[in-house]
Amino acid sequence: MSTATAPAARRRLIVAEDSIPTLARGTRLRYDETRQRWVLLVPERVMAPDEIAVEILQLCDGQRSVAAIIDQLAAAYAAPREEIGADVIAMLQDLAGSGFVVEARRATP
């Protein structure tokens, strides 16, 4: 087992503004034509992200930092940065806890 995938390192990602989040392998975001909605496909489950969650997930491209994601959404919604920042980090932290979002530099090539 390589050290890059040791449980503690892989799982306990603490999402901070300088994190660069990306969807883990085995997590797929796609539009479902049949049900006319976005879905997040994960092991054994299909999640139904709401509009804002979809926007956040789409910005998790392995390039942008969390700070950049927050800036972009704060501008788009003309909303206070602190408020949006707290929501974005809380959601990403939840996803990281389930292993659906990982730090880009640790993602499998």
Binding site: I52, D87, M91
Partner: peptide, 23 residues
């Protein structure tokens, strides 16, 4: 703009992240 739920399941309701289980 807090992410919200669209489709909750009574079994897995744990909707803190704007993501419900789709059933």
């Amino acid at each position: 703009m807090s992410p919200t739920l669209l489709d909750t399941s009574p079994v897995f309701a744990d909707p803190t992240d704007g993501l419900a289980i789709l059933e």
